[in-house]
Amino acid sequence: MRGVETVIETRALTKKFGERAAVNGVDLTVGAGVAFGFLGPNGAGKTTMIRTLLGLTQPTSGEVALLGLPQPTKRAEALARVGAIVEEPRFHPHLTGRQNLKIVAAARDRAAEARIGESLERVGLAQRADDRVKTYSLGMRQRLGIARCLLADPALLILDEPMNGLDPAGILEMRRLIRAFVDEGRTVLLSSHLLDEVEKTCDQVAIVDEGRVIVQGAVGEIAARGEPTVLVEVDDVAAARRVLDGRDIEEEGSGGLRVKLGDGVTAAELNRLLVEAGLAVSRLEPARATLEETFLEITSRLEEHG
């Protein structure tokens, strides 16, 4: 299993509930040693996709390979090196954190039990490990869920909306943990509807909507697919708006404008238009495209075509 270059590979993966396809012919490739974001709005099919990958629900058709091993034929072998949190992490509330880990460790190999202590340390729960889980906050449960994943010494972690319910400090801590896992050579697939989080945490991303992967690739590359945008600061914003009438313009908080250039128009041409109109341009710079903009652009394009 070591040295596998592709940790998740699906071909035409489909999961239907009646006539409705929650996962619709998905071809997904996730390379090793990256944080991969599975990004989409609520109801896009992210969780169903994860459940199908893990064999929690049977696919209607298509193929899945985890860690290079075809599923479901080599299921046990693959899942022995996979840790996953699906939906919110759940536990036996009457048991302590340590006892809950002991139960899952019993289902794994003998080495898993020896990892309980270090896993609890790693997520900062060693002090509360002997308290009942029903006394834990959602953030602590998320961390205990990560500790449970670590029992497998996973080559692949699959985390479904891991930032849900976390406070800002918790989100930061979770992001650090995920990046640390990647630095150790593990692969992390995380699903999220929080674009900002995926952008900050992940190296690669797949944008999903209505059960289909719309686009996948490096975060930077996908973000750059958005329409070129420039930030403009002029002495008379209202006049600039009149000059650029018909273009997609948003006002920036600082008194500047964010202008989408549109097809074939360059920043230099925009500058010329403003200067010829007698405006003093004090700033003109390309805006860094965010994943959010690209995502919204892609999904709104889909809506238009739908």
Binding site: L56, A84, H92, A107
Partner: peptide, 22 residues
């Protein structure tokens, strides 16, 4: 019923253990 009722069954399934054994 407790594994399913507490939502832990899926976490046991993703260990790769057969459902029959579980």
């Amino acid at each position: 019923s407790q594994d399913v009722a507490n939502g832990v069954f899926r976490d046991l399934v993703v260990t790769g253990r057969s459902r029959k054994t579980l």
